[in-house]
Design a protein around this nucleic acid. Structure first.
Length: 413
RNA sequence: GCGAGUAUAGCUCAGUUGGCAGAGCGUCAGAUUGUGGCUCUGAAUGUCACGGGUUCGAGCCCCGUUACUCGCCCCA
């Protein structure tokens, strides 16, 4: 048996129907917020991700699906491609601020785990061209609005500001200095991080690290007046919209391009991978990818994780659509007739089904019941002769007579 | 890359001290001629993940392999 590749998912009809429902809802909310959809290729030049995400990040250094001698890579995230498209198509000339969203699958060669797959889907949004605090609030509010559209509880919004490059550099020096006093007591993972990514020690799950980090210097105190005010404004903006949050100075994000505001929405209903949505400001990225200096902010939301949270919350997904009418046929003549009738109904936009196995009437009735068809009509020699059929309502078994040609005008309620 | 757990029907899972391969759900068929749901009867579907070993005898015990799941790392 040939099986699906590790870390991928089959969406069987019920799954696909639910995913479509989620996507519909996301699109509606995004559209109310006036974000417009953008789609980019499934793969990009590898160079884009190296320069955008950072050569030293795990994503780029060991998780990318690259091919053609490494020239191209299946996209592991969407921010870099969106910014590439923004620059390449001069979207800054279309309007000063671009509010974009995407729903797309991406690829990372990681060890699969609960809520983490090698092919996964994200809903994400980006506001490009504004460094104002209102852009942060607009974007975060989009994220919280669609999550609350799903009636989700047990969600925590954590927010932080990791400063600009200069601020962060000063902070990192002090952080390293502080941590070096505790080096022997840090976890072995954090020993490594001391050199690779000291910020990450802040959100370590090791109890020893957590204890040490408690008294570590706090990034917010290293912010300059401008960033400090920006952060204050973002917070009060969120408050004015009634969005609850929690300042978390250990919230650092793994991709190199983040600056200033970072935020994350996590759920207690998930396992280890508990972040449903995460993002932040990336004011240097456009420039870094060859555009003019342009501030921007964005987030990404993992749809598989969102689905897990919805299931944990017993979210009430809509019922699968069912046929308006099932045409039961008895006999060869009726079989042909039912095909013609079905086609006529379908071109008139009426969902209908017929038997494709030449089954007994009883079996066809069972099939209609299983498909939850609202109505059933039986066509046999008599009906063909008289041109009249009975339409049976499945919910109560009541029947009405009508002409075969009139079925398409029937009111299927 | 590192660690732990699991593997029996389409699905969810039983399977006792090693002794004929099972249940529920689902699927299909039937219960007086052309009418569903409820009920009843019956049927099909298995390389017990794979390979070796121990044993008169292995789904069960031992070794190896693979796959899946969960965790570390990282991230959505």
């Amino acid at each position: 048996m040939i099986t699906k590749p590790k870390g991928t998912l089959d969406f069987l009809p019920d799954d696909a129907f639910r995913r479509l429902h989620v996507e519909d809802k996301l699109r509606r909310v995004a559209s109310v917020f006036n974000y417009r959809e953008i789609r980019t290729p499934a793969f990009e030049k590898t160079e884009l991700f190296k320069r955008g995400i950072g050569e030293e990040t795990d994503i780029v250094s060991k998780e990318m699906y690259s091919f053609d001698d490494g020239e191209f890579t299946l996209k592991p995230e969407m921010t870099a491609p969106v910014i590439r498209a923004y620059i390449e198509n001069s979207l800054y000339n279309v309007s000063a601020v671009q509010k974009l969203y995407y729903i797309s699958n991406m690829f990372r060669h990681e060890r699969p785990q609960a809520g983490r797959y090698r092919e996964f889907s994200q809903f994400g949004a980006e506001v490009i061209g504004s460094g104002d605090y209102t852009a942060d609030v607009d974007l975060i509010s989009l994220g919280t609005t669609f999550l609350s559209e799903f009636g989700l509880k047990n969600l925590k919004i954590k927010i932080n500001n990791i400063g600009n490059l200069a601020e962060r550099k000063a902070y990192l020096e002090d952080l390293k200095k502080y941590l070096s006093d505790f080096t022997p007591h840090l976890s072995s993972e954090s020993h490594r991080r001391l050199f690779t990514n000291p910020l990450r020690i802040l959100d370590s799950k090791d109890p020893r690290d957590i204890e040490i980090v408690k008294n570590a210097p706090v990034i917010l105190e290293y912010l300059g007046p401008e960033n400090k005010e920006h952060f204050r404004n973002v917070l009060s903006g969120l408050e004015s919209l009634g969005i609850g949050y929690e300042i978390d100075h250990t919230l650092v994000r793994g991709l190199d391009y983040y600056t200033s505001t970072t935020f994350e929405i996590a759920s207690d209903d998930l396992g280890a991978q508990n972040a449903v949505l995460g993002g932040g400001r990336y004011d240097m990225l456009v420039q870094q990818l060859g555009g003019k200096p342009t501030p921007a902010i964005g987030f990404a939301c993992g749809l598989e994780r969102l689905t897990l949270v919805l299931q944990a919350n017993k979210y009430d997904f809509p019922e699968n659509e069912s046929p308006a009418i099932y045409i039961v046929s008895a006999g060869d003549e009726a079989k042909k007739k039912s095909l013609i009738l079905a086609n006529k109904l379908r071109v008139n936009g009426i969902t209908c089904e017929t038997d494709l196995l030449g089954r007994s009437i009883k079996a066809q009735m069972k099939d209609a019941n299983r498909l939850n068809a609202k109505y059933v009509t039986v066509i046999g020699d008599d009906e063909i002769k008289t041109g009249k059929v009975k339409i049976k309502r499945m919910s109560d078994g009541s029947e009405q007579e009508t002409g075969i040609g009139e079925i398409k005008n029937y009111n299927f309620i």
